[in-house]
Simulated scan of single mutants.
Amino acid sequence: MSQSTTRASRAPADWMDRDNDRNRAFRPDLPRVAPDRNIQLMRLRREQMERRLAALRASGRVPRIALYARTVNGQTPARSLTAARGFAESRAWQVGREQEFTDCLSLSTAEDRLGWLQMKQRIASGFIDGIVAITRPDVSPQLSEYEHELDWLAWHGGFVALVHPENVVPQ
């Protein structure tokens, strides 16, 4: 997969970006299509994750991960947590004991979810490096809140990995 994952860089990432820059400069009359917000956030998440993983590899440390899933009617999301654990283990990431967090699906904002807040606290404290969730809506169904959470995690040295990336719709 060779695609650009840089965010708002001054230097164009590839020939298409350079061509688009020239068209913007010399052909202002052409209609412009705004980039899809979902794709922008997918790139942001992947860039932040790759940057943090590279830093961890450079220091010789294995990423320490927490698993996160949303529940319905208080049921234990065993299948979701198993999928998240399998994802983390397939990448040789360390999932510590008692590093599974769940929140009720009805709690829509991240600030209302105790499990999510506990993981953020552990990232800020340096106990974990990242979070594995199943899908983007598990982090937040609202794009602006999702971006806010990604930025907060990156600012505090964390990242989010998704079992089903933003560009894949689970069936």
Rank of each mutant, 00 (worst) to 15 (best):
E100F: 11
R46S: 05
R51M: 01
T82G: 09
E100W: 07
Y146G: 09
R27F: 13
P77V: 06
R113S: 05
T71Q: 15
R70L: 15
P63D: 04
G60S: 02
M49H: 00
E47T: 02
G86C: 11
R37K: 13
E98P: 03
G115Q: 09
E147H: 12
I39K: 05
E89R: 13
E47S: 08
A66P: 07
W155K: 11
L81D: 11
V160G: 14
R24G: 01
E149N: 11
P141M: 11
H164P: 04
Q99E: 10
R51F: 01
L114E: 14
D103F: 05
G74F: 15
E145P: 08
E145W: 06
A54L: 05
R70G: 15
V33T: 13
A54H: 00
R32P: 03
Q40G: 12
L81F: 11
L105D: 13
R122T: 08
D129G: 08
S125M: 11
E147T: 04
H156K: 04
D129W: 05
N23C: 05
A88G: 02
A124T: 07
N23T: 08
P165D: 11
Q48E: 06
A55R: 01
M49V: 07
A124I: 04
I123C: 03
F127M: 12
R79P: 06
A124H: 10
D103N: 11
A88W: 06
L114W: 10
R32G: 12
L150Y: 11
R85G: 13
R113D: 12
I39Q: 08
E98Y: 12
P63I: 05
V160N: 07
I39F: 06
Q48P: 07
H148N: 05
E98L: 01
L81H: 14
P28K: 08
R70F: 14
Q75R: 15
W155P: 01
V62E: 09
P63C: 12
V163A: 12
L56V: 02
R70A: 15
T82V: 01
S59I: 00
S108N: 14
L153A: 15
W93Y: 06
R52M: 00
Y68Q: 13
A154L: 09
D36Q: 14
R122D: 13
A25H: 03
F26V: 02
A88P: 06
R97P: 04
Y146R: 10
D151A: 07
R37C: 03
E50K: 00
H148E: 06
G74Y: 15
G157S: 06
W152G: 03
R51H: 02
R57L: 01
N23M: 11
L107Y: 15
I128K: 10
